[in-house]
């Protein structure tokens, strides 16, 4: 079973590599950030798969931390993209 998990893990790493290609190409900053978000989810999946593969379920705590902080980089990104670095994209009036 452990080999099966690692094989799935290799598959996940390959999808992650695909997302890396989008980070490289862009074209917009939002595209890169979005692709990074996908690698984040793939990373969480990798961690839980490794926990199962090794049978050491304490590794799930790492997945828990990654999932908890998964949105932090994206929040920092929208902050950096706002005019003075302090705002929120929803504050702008689009009409």
């Amino acid at each position: 079973m452990s080999d099966w998990y690692l094989a799935i893990g290799i598959g996940l790493l390959l999808t992650l590599a695909g997302a890396l290609f989008r980070v490289w190409r862009g074209p917009d900053a939002a595209d890169r950030m979005m692709a990074a978000q996908l690698t984040g989810t793939a990373g969480i999946a990798l961690v839980v798969i490794l926990a199962a593969a090794s049978g050491d379920w304490a590794m799930l705590d790492v997945g828990l931390v990654l999932a908890l902080l998964a949105a932090l980089a994206a929040v920092a990104f929208v902050k950096a993209a706002s005019p003075n670095g302090a705002g929120d994209p929803e504050e702008d009036d689009l009409s």
Binding site: D28, G63, A67, A74, L94
Partner: peptide, 29 residues
């Protein structure tokens, strides 16, 4: 724990999708 990880990842994904989409829209405008 596994289910909690999934729930947290879903919430994070929903939030970031909304924020990044909005940010892209605003910066394009």
């Amino acid at each position: 724990k596994l289910v909690l990880i999934w729930a947290l990842a879903m919430i994070a994904a929903g939030t970031t999708a909304q924020l990044i989409a909005r940010s892209a829209l605003v910066s394009n405008l």
